[in-house]
């Protein structure tokens, strides 16, 4: 079987894979950044006292979590232009990924926040911090600490989900594999290489998360 496996062609396609890898990394990176932002805001709204804001955040989180990412991606890609909102493929991909992950992150962060003892909120309140200050200086630093494993899991999901943007013809890692598979008719080599690169990203993220978590544990002096 292995004698049919062409490392030579993989080598030929390496520049394309590296371009794809780079695109996957930066598209995911930007999406993660916005997803975190959206997630924290949505979570903040969901936990706020305003009934209307709470409702809005709830609808957003529910509707994202109850529909497939691919459907959301197609909605933005095919649907937005008909509403005269014109984004290019990459922007559409980032929008869909960030909005999708944001909803999951909102729930992860919420679980982290409700795990913080109520005494922390009380102390911060008693010492005059307002809602945003309590979140910023007391609750979120602690909540994010305990949610690192779950957040990392979500980041990894996002990196893998970013392969879907190949369907709206963005050249990223999976698309590079598709090109090799169709141009040279070598799907095994093409998608094996793709998988290997995703594995690489996974290990880097995992390493970063362990490093971050150890640092936090050290800071809390346990």
């Amino acid at each position: 079987m292995l004698e049919h496996f062409s490392f030579r062609v993989i080598g030929q396609y390496m520049p394309l894979f590296l371009r794809g890898l780079w695109a996957t990394c930066w598209i995911s990176g930007i999406s993660i950044f916005f997803a975190l932002l959206i997630g924290i805001i949505a979570c903040g709204l969901r936990l706020s006292k305003g009934r209307f804001l709470k409702k809005i955040a709830g609808i957003y989180i529910e509707s994202i979590r109850s529909t497939p990412l691919l459907a959301q991606l197609y909605f933005f890609y095919f649907g937005l232009p008909t509403l005269h909102v014109n984004l290019n493929e990459v922007q559409t991909g980032i929008l869909a990924l960030a909005l999708n992950s944001g909803a999951y992150i909102a729930e992860i962060v919420r679980a982290g926040i409700v795990s913080i003892p109520s005494g922390q909120v009380e102390a911060a309140t008693a010492y005059g911090l307002n809602y945003l200050q309590r979140m910023r200086y007391v609750i979120l630093p602690q909540a994010l600490g305990v949610t690192i494993p779950a957040l990392l899991g979500q980041f990894i999901v996002l990196v893998k989900d970013s392969s879907l943007v190949s369907l709206i013809s963005v050249l990223e890692l999976t698309r590079a594999g598709q090109l090799m598979a169709s141009e040279r008719f070598m799907p095994a080599e093409g998608f094996f290489t793709v998988a290997a690169f995703y594995l690489l990203i996974y290990y880097i993220l995992k390493y970063l998360s362990n490093w971050w978590q150890n640092r936090l544990i050290y800071m809390e002096g346990h």
Binding site: G119, A123, A124, T125, A126, Y127, G128, Q142, L216, E220
Partner: peptide, 17 residues
């Protein structure tokens, strides 16, 4: 109002981070 009132809790409620 709150900045004129110091409050000490039974469980301390220091910020652990």
């Amino acid at each position: 109002l709150r900045s004129e009132i110091g409050f000490v809790f039974q469980q301390f409620n220091l910020y652990p981070h």
